[in-house]
Amino acid sequence: MNIEVPTEAPPQRKVKVHRTGLDYAALWAVIGLFAIAGIAVLNLASFILIPLTFAVVVGLILGLAADRLGAMGIPSVLTAAILSGLFVGIVILLVSIIAGPLNMLIKNAPEMIEKTLQFLESISWLERPVQSLMRGPGSADNVMEHTGTILSTLATGVMPALLQIMIFAGSLMLFLSSRMTLRRAMIRVFTNRPRRLAAIRMINQVEAVLGYYFATAIAIYSSFGLIAALIAWIGGLGSPLLWGVASFILSFVPFLGIATVTVAIAIAGLMVHETMFYGLLPAIAFFLVNAVYENLLIPSVMGRKLEMNSYMLFVAIVFWTWLWGAVGAMLAVPLTVICMTLLGNFFPPGTPKPNLPD
Protein backbone atom coordinates (compact mmCIF):
# COMPACT_ATOMS: atom_id res chain seq x y z
CA MET A 1 0.00 0.00 0.00
CA ASN A 2 1.53 3.22 -1.14
CA ILE A 3 0.88 6.27 0.99
CA GLU A 4 1.47 9.58 -0.70
CA VAL A 5 3.08 12.08 1.58
CA PRO A 6 2.00 15.62 0.74
CA THR A 7 4.89 17.78 -0.12
CA GLU A 8 5.07 21.51 0.30
CA ALA A 9 4.67 23.55 -2.83
CA PRO A 10 7.82 25.25 -3.90
CA PRO A 11 7.85 28.93 -3.04
CA GLN A 12 6.84 31.13 -5.92
CA ARG A 13 9.34 33.62 -7.04
CA LYS A 14 8.23 37.20 -7.41
CA VAL A 15 8.70 38.39 -10.91
CA LYS A 16 10.05 41.90 -10.98
CA VAL A 17 8.53 43.94 -13.75
CA HIS A 18 10.98 46.20 -15.44
CA ARG A 19 9.32 49.38 -16.68
CA THR A 20 10.85 51.39 -19.41
CA GLY A 21 10.70 55.13 -19.90
CA LEU A 22 7.96 54.62 -22.48
CA ASP A 23 5.80 52.82 -19.88
CA TYR A 24 6.12 55.71 -17.45
CA ALA A 25 5.38 58.17 -20.25
CA ALA A 26 2.19 56.23 -21.09
CA LEU A 27 1.10 56.26 -17.43
CA TRP A 28 1.62 60.00 -17.12
CA ALA A 29 -0.14 60.54 -20.45
CA VAL A 30 -3.23 58.70 -19.16
CA ILE A 31 -3.17 60.77 -15.95
CA GLY A 32 -2.85 63.94 -18.01
CA LEU A 33 -5.78 62.96 -20.23
CA PHE A 34 -7.96 62.29 -17.18
CA ALA A 35 -6.95 65.67 -15.71
CA ILE A 36 -7.80 67.49 -18.95
CA ALA A 37 -11.13 65.65 -19.17
CA GLY A 38 -11.93 66.55 -15.56
CA ILE A 39 -11.18 70.24 -16.15
CA ALA A 40 -13.33 70.18 -19.29
CA VAL A 41 -16.24 68.64 -17.33
CA LEU A 42 -15.86 71.27 -14.60
CA ASN A 43 -15.98 73.99 -17.24
CA LEU A 44 -18.87 72.60 -19.27
CA ALA A 45 -21.01 71.81 -16.22
CA SER A 46 -20.14 75.04 -14.40
CA PHE A 47 -23.75 76.28 -14.43
CA ILE A 48 -24.79 73.38 -12.17
CA LEU A 49 -21.52 72.68 -10.36
CA ILE A 50 -20.95 76.25 -9.14
CA PRO A 51 -24.09 76.49 -6.94
CA LEU A 52 -23.80 72.84 -5.84
CA THR A 53 -20.14 73.21 -4.82
CA PHE A 54 -20.80 76.52 -3.11
CA ALA A 55 -23.69 74.93 -1.18
CA VAL A 56 -21.54 71.98 -0.05
CA VAL A 57 -18.71 74.29 1.10
CA VAL A 58 -21.12 76.53 3.02
CA GLY A 59 -22.82 73.44 4.45
CA LEU A 60 -19.50 72.09 5.70
CA ILE A 61 -18.68 75.48 7.22
CA LEU A 62 -22.05 75.53 9.01
CA GLY A 63 -21.62 71.90 10.11
CA LEU A 64 -20.44 72.78 13.62
CA ALA A 65 -23.39 75.11 14.13
CA ALA A 66 -25.73 72.38 12.87
CA ASP A 67 -24.24 69.95 15.40
CA ARG A 68 -24.79 72.46 18.22
CA LEU A 69 -28.42 72.99 17.24
CA GLY A 70 -28.91 69.23 16.86
CA ALA A 71 -27.52 68.66 20.36
CA MET A 72 -30.18 71.07 21.66
CA GLY A 73 -32.88 68.75 20.31
CA ILE A 74 -33.80 70.79 17.23
CA PRO A 75 -34.80 68.57 14.25
CA SER A 76 -32.45 68.47 11.30
CA VAL A 77 -34.99 69.98 8.90
CA LEU A 78 -35.61 72.94 11.22
CA THR A 79 -31.86 73.31 11.75
CA ALA A 80 -31.31 73.42 7.99
CA ALA A 81 -34.08 76.02 7.59
CA ILE A 82 -32.64 78.22 10.37
CA LEU A 83 -29.05 78.13 9.14
CA SER A 84 -29.97 78.50 5.46
CA GLY A 85 -32.27 81.42 6.20
CA LEU A 86 -29.63 83.05 8.39
CA PHE A 87 -26.96 82.76 5.70
CA VAL A 88 -29.23 84.04 2.92
CA GLY A 89 -30.41 86.87 5.18
CA ILE A 90 -26.84 87.99 5.84
CA VAL A 91 -26.10 87.96 2.10
CA ILE A 92 -29.24 90.00 1.38
CA LEU A 93 -28.27 92.47 4.13
CA LEU A 94 -24.80 92.97 2.64
CA VAL A 95 -26.27 93.45 -0.83
CA SER A 96 -28.81 95.98 0.47
CA ILE A 97 -26.05 97.92 2.23
CA ILE A 98 -24.02 98.39 -0.94
CA ALA A 99 -26.98 98.65 -3.33
CA GLY A 100 -27.62 102.36 -2.72
CA PRO A 101 -24.02 103.61 -2.97
CA LEU A 102 -23.38 101.29 -5.91
CA ASN A 103 -26.43 102.61 -7.77
CA MET A 104 -25.24 106.17 -7.21
CA LEU A 105 -21.77 105.15 -8.40
CA ILE A 106 -23.22 103.72 -11.61
CA LYS A 107 -25.20 106.92 -12.26
CA ASN A 108 -22.09 109.06 -11.79
CA ALA A 109 -19.86 106.68 -13.76
CA PRO A 110 -19.65 108.81 -16.97
CA GLU A 111 -18.65 111.91 -15.02
CA MET A 112 -16.12 109.91 -12.99
CA ILE A 113 -14.61 108.38 -16.14
CA GLU A 114 -14.33 111.82 -17.75
CA LYS A 115 -12.60 113.28 -14.68
CA THR A 116 -10.24 110.32 -14.50
CA LEU A 117 -9.27 110.71 -18.15
CA GLN A 118 -8.76 114.44 -17.72
CA PHE A 119 -6.49 113.82 -14.74
CA LEU A 120 -4.49 111.19 -16.60
CA GLU A 121 -4.24 113.49 -19.61
CA SER A 122 -2.65 116.16 -17.42
CA ILE A 123 0.32 113.81 -16.91
CA SER A 124 2.71 114.44 -19.77
CA TRP A 125 3.83 110.88 -20.45
CA LEU A 126 0.20 109.64 -20.41
CA GLU A 127 -1.22 112.32 -22.70
CA ARG A 128 -0.96 110.40 -25.98
CA PRO A 129 -2.26 107.03 -24.68
CA VAL A 130 -5.23 108.75 -23.03
CA GLN A 131 -6.07 110.71 -26.18
CA SER A 132 -5.99 107.55 -28.27
CA LEU A 133 -8.22 105.85 -25.69
CA MET A 134 -10.70 108.72 -25.76
CA ARG A 135 -10.91 108.51 -29.54
CA GLY A 136 -11.08 104.70 -29.63
CA PRO A 137 -14.02 102.32 -29.30
CA GLY A 138 -13.69 102.29 -25.51
CA SER A 139 -14.19 106.04 -25.12
CA ALA A 140 -16.80 107.43 -22.74
CA ASP A 141 -18.97 108.71 -25.62
CA ASN A 142 -19.11 105.32 -27.28
CA VAL A 143 -19.89 103.67 -23.97
CA MET A 144 -22.78 106.06 -23.40
CA GLU A 145 -24.08 105.46 -26.93
CA HIS A 146 -24.15 101.72 -26.36
CA THR A 147 -25.54 101.90 -22.82
CA GLY A 148 -28.80 100.24 -23.93
CA THR A 149 -26.94 97.32 -25.46
CA ILE A 150 -24.81 96.92 -22.35
CA LEU A 151 -27.85 96.97 -20.05
CA SER A 152 -29.73 94.47 -22.21
CA THR A 153 -26.71 92.17 -22.15
CA LEU A 154 -26.61 92.39 -18.37
CA ALA A 155 -30.34 91.77 -18.18
CA THR A 156 -30.03 88.53 -20.12
CA GLY A 157 -27.73 87.23 -17.41
CA VAL A 158 -30.16 88.01 -14.59
CA MET A 159 -32.40 84.96 -15.09
CA PRO A 160 -29.53 82.41 -15.14
CA ALA A 161 -28.09 84.07 -12.03
CA LEU A 162 -31.47 83.85 -10.25
CA LEU A 163 -31.74 80.19 -11.24
CA GLN A 164 -28.29 79.49 -9.82
CA ILE A 165 -29.25 81.26 -6.60
CA MET A 166 -32.34 79.04 -6.32
CA ILE A 167 -30.22 75.93 -6.93
CA PHE A 168 -27.79 77.08 -4.26
CA ALA A 169 -30.49 77.79 -1.67
CA GLY A 170 -32.23 74.45 -2.26
CA SER A 171 -28.95 72.52 -2.26
CA LEU A 172 -27.79 74.19 0.96
CA MET A 173 -31.00 73.39 2.82
CA LEU A 174 -31.13 69.78 1.58
CA PHE A 175 -27.43 69.24 2.34
CA LEU A 176 -27.80 70.54 5.89
CA SER A 177 -30.96 68.50 6.52
CA SER A 178 -29.43 65.24 5.20
CA ARG A 179 -25.84 65.88 6.29
CA MET A 180 -25.70 63.09 8.87
CA THR A 181 -27.29 60.61 6.44
CA LEU A 182 -24.70 61.44 3.79
CA ARG A 183 -21.98 61.20 6.41
CA ARG A 184 -23.06 57.70 7.47
CA ALA A 185 -23.31 56.60 3.83
CA MET A 186 -19.75 57.79 3.14
CA ILE A 187 -18.45 55.96 6.21
CA ARG A 188 -20.24 52.69 5.34
CA VAL A 189 -18.49 52.60 1.99
CA PHE A 190 -15.40 51.35 3.83
CA THR A 191 -15.51 47.72 4.93
CA ASN A 192 -13.25 47.40 7.98
CA ARG A 193 -13.20 49.32 11.24
CA PRO A 194 -9.81 51.12 10.90
CA ARG A 195 -10.79 52.63 7.55
CA ARG A 196 -14.15 53.74 8.89
CA LEU A 197 -12.47 55.40 11.85
CA ALA A 198 -10.04 57.11 9.46
CA ALA A 199 -12.98 58.35 7.36
CA ILE A 200 -14.74 59.72 10.46
CA ARG A 201 -11.55 61.47 11.55
CA MET A 202 -11.06 62.92 8.07
CA ILE A 203 -14.62 64.29 7.81
CA ASN A 204 -14.42 65.79 11.31
CA GLN A 205 -11.10 67.41 10.50
CA VAL A 206 -12.40 68.97 7.26
CA GLU A 207 -15.43 70.45 9.04
CA ALA A 208 -13.31 71.69 11.94
CA VAL A 209 -10.70 73.34 9.72
CA LEU A 210 -13.31 74.98 7.49
CA GLY A 211 -15.32 76.20 10.48
CA TYR A 212 -12.20 77.59 12.16
CA TYR A 213 -11.10 79.33 8.95
CA PHE A 214 -14.51 80.88 8.29
CA ALA A 215 -15.06 82.07 11.88
CA THR A 216 -11.57 83.54 12.09
CA ALA A 217 -11.84 85.14 8.65
CA ILE A 218 -15.18 86.78 9.52
CA ALA A 219 -13.74 88.31 12.71
CA ILE A 220 -10.54 89.54 11.05
CA TYR A 221 -12.07 90.79 7.80
CA SER A 222 -14.91 92.54 9.65
CA SER A 223 -12.40 94.64 11.56
CA PHE A 224 -10.52 95.21 8.31
CA GLY A 225 -13.74 96.41 6.65
CA LEU A 226 -14.36 98.85 9.51
CA ILE A 227 -10.86 100.26 9.11
CA ALA A 228 -11.38 100.57 5.33
CA ALA A 229 -14.65 102.44 5.92
CA LEU A 230 -12.86 104.74 8.38
CA ILE A 231 -10.10 105.41 5.84
CA ALA A 232 -12.70 106.20 3.17
CA TRP A 233 -14.55 108.55 5.56
CA ILE A 234 -11.41 110.40 6.68
CA GLY A 235 -10.05 110.50 3.12
CA GLY A 236 -13.25 112.10 1.84
CA LEU A 237 -13.99 109.32 -0.63
CA GLY A 238 -17.68 109.14 0.22
CA SER A 239 -19.88 106.06 0.80
CA PRO A 240 -17.83 104.53 3.65
CA LEU A 241 -20.29 101.64 3.95
CA LEU A 242 -19.63 100.69 0.33
CA TRP A 243 -15.87 100.66 0.85
CA GLY A 244 -16.17 98.75 4.12
CA VAL A 245 -18.46 96.03 2.78
CA ALA A 246 -16.45 95.74 -0.45
CA SER A 247 -13.23 95.35 1.55
CA PHE A 248 -14.87 92.73 3.79
CA ILE A 249 -16.20 90.65 0.88
CA LEU A 250 -13.14 90.93 -1.36
CA SER A 251 -10.81 90.05 1.53
CA PHE A 252 -12.00 86.45 1.10
CA VAL A 253 -10.13 86.51 -2.23
CA PRO A 254 -6.46 86.89 -1.22
CA PHE A 255 -4.15 88.97 -3.42
CA LEU A 256 -6.65 89.78 -6.19
CA GLY A 257 -9.45 91.14 -3.98
CA ILE A 258 -7.26 93.48 -1.94
CA ALA A 259 -5.43 94.64 -5.08
CA THR A 260 -8.78 95.53 -6.66
CA VAL A 261 -9.90 97.56 -3.63
CA THR A 262 -6.53 99.34 -3.42
CA VAL A 263 -6.66 100.38 -7.08
CA ALA A 264 -10.28 101.53 -6.68
CA ILE A 265 -9.40 103.63 -3.60
CA ALA A 266 -6.47 105.16 -5.48
CA ILE A 267 -8.69 106.12 -8.44
CA ALA A 268 -11.38 107.54 -6.15
CA GLY A 269 -8.80 109.54 -4.20
CA LEU A 270 -7.30 111.02 -7.35
CA MET A 271 -10.76 112.05 -8.51
CA VAL A 272 -11.70 113.67 -5.20
CA HIS A 273 -8.44 115.48 -4.39
CA GLU A 274 -6.58 117.85 -6.65
CA THR A 275 -3.02 116.83 -5.75
CA MET A 276 -1.55 113.40 -6.32
CA PHE A 277 -0.18 113.14 -2.77
CA TYR A 278 -3.53 113.62 -1.03
CA GLY A 279 -5.24 111.54 -3.72
CA LEU A 280 -3.03 108.52 -3.15
CA LEU A 281 -2.85 108.90 0.64
CA PRO A 282 -6.02 106.82 1.38
CA ALA A 283 -4.77 104.03 -0.88
CA ILE A 284 -1.37 104.08 0.82
CA ALA A 285 -3.01 103.92 4.26
CA PHE A 286 -5.24 101.04 3.11
CA PHE A 287 -2.23 99.18 1.70
CA LEU A 288 -0.22 99.60 4.93
CA VAL A 289 -3.13 98.36 7.07
CA ASN A 290 -3.53 95.35 4.78
CA ALA A 291 0.21 94.64 5.06
CA VAL A 292 -0.07 94.60 8.87
CA TYR A 293 -3.07 92.25 8.68
CA GLU A 294 -1.53 89.86 6.15
CA ASN A 295 1.94 89.66 7.70
CA LEU A 296 1.30 90.00 11.43
CA LEU A 297 -2.31 89.56 12.52
CA ILE A 298 -3.57 86.77 10.25
CA PRO A 299 -0.52 84.45 10.70
CA SER A 300 -0.57 84.94 14.48
CA VAL A 301 -4.32 84.26 14.78
CA MET A 302 -4.67 81.40 12.30
CA GLY A 303 -1.28 79.92 13.13
CA ARG A 304 0.09 76.77 11.59
CA LYS A 305 -3.36 75.16 11.53
CA LEU A 306 -4.13 76.92 8.25
CA GLU A 307 -0.60 77.45 6.98
CA MET A 308 -0.62 77.46 3.18
CA ASN A 309 2.03 78.10 0.61
CA SER A 310 1.48 81.58 -0.82
CA TYR A 311 2.46 80.63 -4.35
CA MET A 312 0.22 77.54 -4.44
CA LEU A 313 -2.64 79.60 -3.01
CA PHE A 314 -2.16 82.24 -5.71
CA VAL A 315 -2.12 79.54 -8.41
CA ALA A 316 -5.34 78.07 -6.97
CA ILE A 317 -7.03 81.48 -7.00
CA VAL A 318 -5.99 82.12 -10.60
CA PHE A 319 -7.10 78.61 -11.68
CA TRP A 320 -10.56 78.74 -10.05
CA THR A 321 -11.09 82.32 -11.23
CA TRP A 322 -10.29 81.27 -14.79
CA LEU A 323 -12.55 78.23 -14.47
CA TRP A 324 -15.58 79.60 -12.58
CA GLY A 325 -15.14 83.37 -12.51
CA ALA A 326 -15.84 85.45 -9.39
CA VAL A 327 -17.50 82.56 -7.50
CA GLY A 328 -14.45 80.42 -8.23
CA ALA A 329 -12.24 83.10 -6.69
CA MET A 330 -14.40 83.03 -3.54
CA LEU A 331 -14.22 79.21 -3.41
CA ALA A 332 -10.48 78.97 -4.08
CA VAL A 333 -9.35 79.19 -0.45
CA PRO A 334 -11.98 76.78 1.02
CA LEU A 335 -11.34 74.24 -1.75
CA THR A 336 -7.59 74.54 -1.17
CA VAL A 337 -8.10 74.01 2.56
CA ILE A 338 -10.20 70.90 1.88
CA CYS A 339 -7.62 69.46 -0.53
CA MET A 340 -4.74 70.12 1.88
CA THR A 341 -6.65 68.47 4.74
CA LEU A 342 -7.45 65.38 2.65
CA LEU A 343 -3.88 65.10 1.37
CA GLY A 344 -2.58 65.47 4.92
CA ASN A 345 -4.68 62.46 5.94
CA PHE A 346 -3.83 60.34 2.90
CA PHE A 347 -0.12 61.19 3.03
CA PRO A 348 0.74 62.06 6.65
CA PRO A 349 4.11 63.74 7.05
CA GLY A 350 6.85 61.48 8.32
CA THR A 351 9.18 62.12 11.22
CA PRO A 352 11.61 64.87 10.22
CA LYS A 353 15.20 63.71 10.07
CA PRO A 354 17.98 66.15 10.92
CA ASN A 355 20.28 66.98 8.04
CA LEU A 356 23.59 66.53 9.81
CA PRO A 357 26.96 66.95 8.08
CA ASP A 358 29.07 63.87 7.38
Rank of each mutant, 00 (worst) to 15 (best):
V289D: 03
V91P: 00
T79F: 09
G21H: 10
L197A: 03
M166A: 15
T53I: 12
A26L: 15
L256H: 06
A198I: 05
L280K: 00
I3D: 05
I3Y: 13
G325P: 09
P299E: 07
V15S: 04
T181E: 06
P254R: 04
G257Y: 08
L94P: 12
L280T: 05
N345Q: 14
L174Q: 01
I113L: 15
V245N: 07
R19V: 01
F319A: 09
P282L: 05
Y213N: 06
R201Y: 00
W322L: 15
A185Y: 01
V130P: 00
G136V: 10
G73D: 08
G136F: 02
V30C: 03
G236E: 06
V41H: 09
L281G: 06
L42P: 12
G244C: 02
W320M: 13
T147R: 15
A217Q: 14
M112T: 07
P240D: 14
L154A: 14
A55E: 09
V289W: 15
A29K: 04
A55Y: 09
P299Q: 07
R183G: 09
F346Y: 09
G38K: 01
Q131N: 11
L356H: 05
V5G: 03
S300D: 02
A217I: 09
G303Y: 06
S152R: 05
P160Y: 00
M1I: 11
E145C: 05
A229Y: 15
R184F: 04
G100L: 06
S171I: 02
S96W: 11
F47N: 00
Q12H: 01
L154V: 12
G225N: 04
S177V: 01
F34R: 03
T7H: 10
I82G: 00
I265N: 05
T191A: 12
I284P: 02
G257S: 01
G236S: 10
